Simulated scan of single mutants.
Amino acid sequence: MGTAGDAYDNAMCESFFGTLEAELLMREHFDTHEQARRRIFSFLEGWYNVRRLHSSIGYRTPLEFESLHAQEQTPSQRGLPTAGQRHGRDRRPAARPWTTRDPTVHGGSTTH
């Protein structure tokens, strides 16, 4: 995060709300709160997230981008995509030296 007043902190959010305002809110009038809520939902789920070209993903629709990404994934031995898979999950964790009590550390003495 940046400092207070930094213009780049919320650039993605500002871009989204600018698009929402320019492409929907300035073009339509809503009589009720419920009507506005339903129209914004249909704008997001029917246009913005599905068919609108996004510059951040190479001027593709999110559906095109997701399908290209899914094609690039290689399945694991169990048939699951490897992205996001936690490797070594079934193995026991390595020794944690920060939790092990060593009597010689911090001036301790050992008795033999």
Results as ranks from 00 to 15, higher is better:
Met1Tyr: 11
Met1Ile: 11
Gly2Glu: 10
Gly2Trp: 04
Gly2Val: 06
Ala4Ser: 07
Ala4Cys: 05
Asp6Glu: 08
Asp6Gln: 08
Ala7Phe: 06
Tyr8Asp: 13
Tyr8Gln: 15
Asp9Glu: 09
Asp9His: 14
Met12Asn: 06
Cys13Thr: 14
Cys13Gly: 12
Glu14Ser: 04
Glu14Trp: 10
Glu14Cys: 07
Glu14Gln: 14
Ser15Ile: 05
Phe16Leu: 15
Gly18Asn: 02
Leu20Phe: 06
Glu21Trp: 07
Ala22Asp: 15
Ala22Ile: 01
Leu24Tyr: 03
Leu24Glu: 08
Leu24Trp: 00
Leu25Thr: 03
Met26Ser: 15
Arg27Pro: 00
Glu28Asn: 13
His29Thr: 00
His29Gln: 01
Phe30Asp: 02
Phe30Ala: 01
Asp31Trp: 09
His33Ala: 04
His33Gly: 04
Arg37Pro: 01
Arg38Tyr: 05
Arg38Val: 03
Arg39Gly: 02
Phe41Ile: 01
Ser42Phe: 00
Phe43Gly: 01
Gly46His: 00
Trp47Thr: 01
Trp47Met: 00
Trp47Leu: 01
Val50Asp: 10
Arg52Val: 06
His54Ser: 06
His54Val: 03
His54Gly: 07
Ser55Lys: 07
Ser55Gly: 08
Ser56Ile: 06
Gly58Met: 05
Gly58Ser: 00
Tyr59Val: 00
Leu63Cys: 04
Leu63Gly: 02
Glu64Thr: 02
Glu64Arg: 09
Glu64Cys: 06
Phe65Val: 01
Glu66Lys: 07
Glu66Asn: 06
Ser67Leu: 14
Leu68Ile: 06
Leu68Tyr: 05
Ala70Asp: 15
Ala70Leu: 15
Glu72Cys: 13
Thr74Trp: 05
Thr74Gly: 06
Gln77Asp: 13
Gln77Ile: 11
Gln77Met: 09
Gly79Leu: 01
Leu80Val: 07
Leu80Ile: 11
Pro81Tyr: 12
Gly84Ile: 05
Arg86Asn: 12
His87Pro: 11
Gly88Arg: 02
Gly88Gln: 01
Arg89Thr: 07
Asp90Thr: 08
Asp90Arg: 10
Arg91Phe: 15
Ala94Ser: 13
Arg96Val: 02
Trp98Cys: 11
Thr100Trp: 14
Arg101Asn: 09
Asp102Thr: 07
Thr104Lys: 14
Thr104Pro: 09
Val105Phe: 12
Val105Trp: 12
Val105Tyr: 12
Val105Ser: 14
Gly107Val: 10
Gly107Gln: 09
Gly108His: 04
Ser109Gly: 09
Thr110Glu: 12
His112Phe: 10
